[in-house]
Computed example of a mutant assay.
Amino acid sequence: MTVLLVMAGGACGAVLRFAVNRWLSATHFPWATLVVNVAGSLLLGVVAASTDGWVFTLLGTGVAGGLTTYSAFALETVLLDRNGRRSAALLNVAASLVLAGAAFALGWWSAALA
Rank of each mutant, 00 (worst) to 15 (best):
L59C: 13
V38Q: 03
A88M: 15
T33V: 09
V36T: 02
T27C: 06
M7W: 14
R85D: 11
W31F: 14
T69H: 05
A100V: 02
V98P: 05
A112Q: 05
L75A: 12
M1Q: 10
T27H: 06
V55E: 15
R22N: 01
A112P: 05
A64Y: 11
S71C: 08
F73I: 04
T77A: 13
V15K: 00
D52T: 02
T2N: 15
A49Y: 07
L106M: 10
L113H: 14
F104D: 06
C12K: 07
G84M: 11
T2D: 10
V38M: 04
V47H: 04
G53V: 07
W109Y: 14
A19D: 07
T2I: 15
E76R: 10
S71E: 12
N21D: 02
S71A: 13
L90H: 12
R22Y: 01
G13H: 02
V3H: 13
A112K: 07
V35T: 11
V55M: 13
T68P: 10
V35C: 07
S71N: 10
V55G: 06
L58V: 14
A100N: 07
G53L: 03
V3D: 03
W23N: 02
W109C: 13
G65T: 14
T57P: 14
F18M: 01
M7D: 03
T69K: 06
T69C: 07
F56M: 06
A32C: 04
A49E: 04
G62A: 04
D81S: 15
W108I: 08
A95G: 04
R85W: 07
L5V: 14
T57I: 15
L34E: 02
L90N: 13
V3T: 12
C12Q: 01
T27P: 03
A103K: 08
A74I: 11
R86M: 09
V36D: 00
A105C: 10
N21A: 07
S50T: 03
L99C: 09
V63C: 09
L44S: 00
W108A: 08
S25A: 14
S41Y: 03
V35M: 02
A94Q: 08
T77K: 08
P30E: 00
S87P: 12
G53A: 04
L24F: 00
N37V: 10
T57Y: 09
L97I: 08
G107C: 10
V36G: 05
V55W: 13
G10F: 03
L106E: 10
G107K: 09
N37S: 03
T57H: 13
T68K: 04
V6N: 04
F104V: 01
L44A: 04
G53W: 02
A26L: 15
T2K: 15
L67E: 00
S50N: 12
D52K: 09
L75H: 15
S25H: 14
V63S: 12
T68W: 09
V46R: 03
W23Y: 06
G9W: 06
A102I: 13
G60E: 05
L99V: 05
S71D: 12
